[in-house]
Design a binder for these strands. Structure first.
Length: 417
RNA sequence: GGGGAGAUACCGAAGCGGUCAAACGGGACGGACUGUAAAUCCGUUGGCUCAGCCUUCGCAGGUUCGAAUCCUGCUCUCCCCA
């Protein structure tokens, strides 16, 4: 099963060795399917947020691997299913979203995804399940699809057990049927025989597989990816500021890069395999590094992932900024987040806590005040000692900028305008 | 439809008339130590014109010198029975 003829390695082996495979149905059948011409797989995206975040990046990476191996990929946008809401893994019903909101999210998803998957021609498709779910007739749906689902069976599923304790509304109980119907639809329309997704979707995916078998008497496949938690047990991609988004306007390339630099030592190898396209030999070498040298591996990781998401130029810029900020040099920090302040305000003097609040480095002046009291604030190259220190023109350097540092690694640039 | 339980700060959870800006735990943040890591230790964690003041304990009223704590109504959640 090793077969190290690099060029012709089977995608399934690639995915396995990089740690993508969590569960799959009939691996032998799946393997041969993926080798067929015209093999097609789909991945669903839930447009319940305004942007994709790191959590969605893992399946996207997997999809890239599949695409590179010649598999046709379909990105399914859950415009219809988002109207219902997936109860999997949730302890309570999530807020129902407004249709307009969903549509808007869908648009930005498409834009973001097109960075990774090129929706051109027939190789990579973009579909929205609102197109077929939206026009379903309730009675018809119940008669054709609903009758294939056993409530008894659904209730024994792990995904619902949790909710049985806290209450599960009927609308959410229907989610699985709709998702299953998606698979049937894509099988019929595109001959799609593989659905991939996060492992929390295993149950929903299987429901689709079953449905296709019952209705069409055809075997289709399911493959899931692990749901990552960091070595410290936290959910992937969560920071103090919230999720790590793929949208540069929500999480700047610099912050994005920093997220990866700050990853736990124990996660480096795993993440290199999953989130970069570096060859395994290279990753193996980086994984050998020990002690402080692990930082080099983290730099490679951060650079590569940032490159995948934001492009090489942004990645290089983020790296340069990080190196100058943490390497001691006072070099340029283009990629650092910045805030503009008016000349008049600066001349009048801005209190230090106020400045922190303006820059978003503190949620309130009180918080800024506390940060200063705790010695966590640096204005330019001097530590701010007094909570009522006034920041005026003399704090800014010749080019009218002032670098404010909070804690060990949050930098912000104030610019006089 | 009937009966019961409950809604406290980011989360979990104490408090049941004053000493409550609200115990404790987790998380997060700051400091020390380091390698922009982990672990550990110390500190912080409503707002403000900050040794003082203002607004918070589901929402709206009420009792009281005084309410997160008592009363009334409302909203929501959960459980049991139908």
């Amino acid at each position: 099963m090793e077969g190290s003829h690099t060029m012709t390695e089977h995608v399934l082996d690639t995915l396995k060795e990089r740690g993508f495979l969590q569960q799959s149905t009939d691996e032998v059948g799946l393997r041969s399917y993926l080798s067929e011409m015209g093999a097609t797989c789909y991945l669903g995206f839930d447009p319940t947020a305004g942007s994709l975040h790191i959590g969605s990046l893992l399946p996207i990476m997997a999809l890239k691997h599949l695409q590179d191996a010649g598999v046709r990929t379909i990105a399914l946008l859950g415009g219809g299913t988002a109207m219902v809401g997936d109860p999997s893994g949730k302890t309570e019903m999530r807020k129902m979203l407004q249709p307009e909101q969903i549509m808007q999210n869908a648009e930005s998803f498409k834009l973001q995804l097109s960075r990774f998957l090129h929706f051109d021609g027939d190789r990579s498709l973009w579909v929205n399940n609102a197109d077929w779910l939206g026009t379903l007739s309730y009675i018809t749906f119940l008669r054709e699809i609903g009758r294939h689902f056993s409530v008894n069976r659904m209730l024994t599923a792990e995904a619902y057990r949790l909710r049985l304790e806290n209450g599960l509304s009927f609308i959410e109980f229907n989610y699985q049927l709709l998702q299953a119907y998606d698979y049937l639809e894509l099988f019929r329309k595109y001959g799609c025989r593989l659905q991939v997704g996060g492992d929390d979707q295993w149950g929903n995916c299987l429901a689709g597989k079953e449905l296709v078998r019952r209705v069409e008497s055809e075997e289709v496949h399911v493959m899931t990816f692990p749901l990552l938690t960091t070595a410290t047990g936290a959910k992937m991609g969560k920071t103090a500021a919230g999720a790590v988004w793929l949208d540069a306007n929500l999480t700047s390339p610099y912050e994005f890069y920093q997220y990866w630099i700050n990853v736990d030592d124990r996660d480096v190898e795993r993440f290199l395999k999953l989130y970069t396209f570096l060859p395994m030999e290279e990753i193996g070498r980086l994984a050998q590094l020990e002690g402080a040298q692990i930082r080099d591996a983290k730099e490679v990781l951060a650079f590569e992932v940032t490159k995948v998401v934001h492009g090489e130029q942004a990645a290089a810029q983020a790296r340069a900024a990080a190196q100058s900020l943490f390497g001691g040099g006072a070099a340029d920090a283009e990629a650092m987040p910045e805030t503009h302040v008016s000349k008049a305000d600066v001349e009048a003097g801005i209190s230090a806590p106020e400045l922190l609040a303006m820059a978003g480095l503190a949620k309130s002046r009180s918080e800024g005040r506390r940060l200063i009291q705790q010695g966590g604030v640096q204005l330019g190259d001097r530590r701010c000692e007094e909570i009522d220190e006034m920041v005026g023109p003399e704090h800014f350097s010749g080019d009218g900028t002032l670098i404010v540092k909070v804690g060990k690694k949050r930098f912000h640039r104030m610019v006089i305008q």
